[in-house]
């Protein structure tokens, strides 16, 4: 089964940024994700890049991973799909910060 033809459904027209703009993120000062790019350079799958529902991980040209923490759903997908021990260090954001679901 392949994806829908382009333009088949009008709601697919929203950009990823618009999609994320519907979510209430209360960004804390401390990054709760840390990525060891050295470990990532030896990773061939880079599963975090496609699996993260918030699209926080971006591969860099030198084989590393660039990450954001601000718009994180705090789901845990990234560290669970990560092949290499220690590449992604993931904790909860500081209390009161991070994602706030209104319609969860």
């Amino acid at each position: 089964m392949s994806g829908p033809a382009p333009g088949r459904s009008p709601w697919d027209g929203i950009s990823f940024e618009e999609r994320m703009a519907t979510v209430d993120f209360r960004v804390g000062a401390r990054a709760h994700i840390a990525v060891d790019a050295e470990v990532c350079r030896s990773c061939t799958t880079k599963a975090c890049v496609s699996a993260c529902p918030a699209n926080l991980f971006a591969p860099t040209s030198d084989g590393g991973i660039l990450f954001n923490y601000e718009e994180c759903f705090e789901c845990g997908t990234c560290y669970m799909v990560c092949d290499s021990e220690g590449a992604i260090t993931w904790t909860y954001p500081d209390g009161g910060h991070g994602v706030v679901f209104h319609h969860g």
Partner: peptide
């Protein structure tokens, strides 16, 4: 959402909140 069975139920709706959880 684009499946022919589901699409008519959701025609023209706007997104209120996107979310994810394990």
């Amino acid at each position: 959402k684009a499946h022919p069975t589901i699409a008519p139920l959701l025609r023209g709706l706007t997104l209120r909140e996107y979310s994810a959880h394990l």
